[in-house]
């Protein structure tokens, strides 16, 4: 019984076509990597060259009489990180839950439809999320802010009054959480369903409950993927422009997240870039560079976490 015809490249290790194919394939894959590096080098050079004037500017040269670039960008760095952190805190548990629901809890027939719906939600443009947050979510949260301000005012986060319009950093964070939820969910779900069936069945056969099975086989297997998914979500949250721009009433840095104030870097760029000129433009691009560095740092931390759990990855 011949399995294949001998002329098939598929099963003949010595065929010239096969070897050439291998070379060509690995070559193109390598080229693609090089192309990415080249693009990035261009972007990096562009960013750095455009930011240098702002980074090196002394007192008096910057717009609005700011003393140094760092005193300008520092409050916004904090604002960006806080907004994204709150968004992640809200979105991560919920999206892992949703992903688990779709992959392991929902009836097979409907789970695919749910997955599809979640994917679609990632497609809603951020302008729409922004408009929704501005018109619907903000006013909805005002009573909660009033309550928090009254009953939890001793916590610095809620002290010092609350916004009548709901256009606060916290509202912006909630909108960001809603935006990144589909992204994290979608990737987590894909990872969860890739869990080897054997592991799952082995756990169940030993008498594990469904949750124990998930804890023992699914989550360890998916850990790297979850971190990766969260980081993609975080990347979106950090860089999100339009939604924050529409939802937040920016102002000076303050610990109070339920009143107007605070600002994120992308929103600052989007709001001011159109009218910017000369030094102001360099300042904003330099702020973009800072955002870039923040994202990079966050990603490196994530990579480090993932690398500590490499043994769970299928390809290793």
């Amino acid at each position: 019984m011949t399995v294949t015809s001998p002329s098939s490249g598929l099963h003949d290790p010595r065929s010239a076509a096969g070897r050439a194919g291998d070379k060509i394939f690995s070559g193109t894959a390598l080229t693609a990597g090089i192309v990415i590096l080249a693009i990035l080098a261009f972007v990096a050079v562009y960013l750095v060259v455009e930011s240098i004037p702002a980074l090196t500017a002394g007192e008096g040269e910057l717009s609005h009489g700011k003393t140094s670039f760092w005193s300008y960008v520092w409050p916004m760095m904090i604002g960006t990180v806080i907004a994204s952190a709150i968004a992640l805190l809200i979105a991560t548990p919920v999206s892992i839950g949703v992903a688990l629901f779709i992959s392991h809890y929902a009836p097979k027939r409907v789970s695919q439809a749910f997955g599809y719906v979640i994917d679609l939600l990632a497609a809603i443009p951020s302008v729409v999320y922004g408009a929704w947050g501005m018109a619907f979510l903000g006013p909805l949260l005002v009573p909660i802010y009033a309550w928090l301000s009254e009953n939890a005012g001793w916590i610095p986060l809620f002290s010092g009054g609350y916004s009548q319009t709901g256009r606060t950093l916290f509202t912006a964070s909630v909108v960001l959480a809603v935006m990144i939820l589909p992204i994290i969910t979608s990737l987590c779900r894909e990872i969860f369903v890739q869990t080897p069936k054997l592991h799952e069945e082995a756990a169940l056969a030993l008498g594990a409950t469904r949750w124990e099975m998930i804890k023992m086989s699914v989550l360890p297997f998916a850990r790297a993927g979850i971190v990766s998914a969260i980081m993609l979500g975080l990347g979106r949250a950090l860089g999100e422009t339009m939604a924050v721009t529409l939802v937040l009433s920016p102002g000076a840095l303050s610990a109070n997240i339920i009143n107007v104030g605070n600002q994120t870097i992308p929103s600052e760029i989007a709001l001011n870039f159109p009218e910017a000129f000369g030094m102001r433009q360099h300042e904003l691009i330099a702020a973009g560079l800072v955002l870039f560095v923040i994202t990079l740092a966050v990603n490196m931390i994530a990579r480090w976490i993932v690398s500590r759990h490499k043994e769970f990855s299928g390809a290793n």
């Binding site: 609005h64 009548q164 256009r167 009433s249 920016p250 102002g251 000076a252 009143n259 107007v260 009218e275």
Partner: peptide, 15 residues
């Protein structure tokens, strides 16, 4: 005279 509203004044704003 400013193009951006002064940050010292805490007030609501919109784009």
């Amino acid at each position: 005279v400013v193009e951006d509203w002064p940050q010292e004044i805490v007030a609501d704003n919109a784009q």
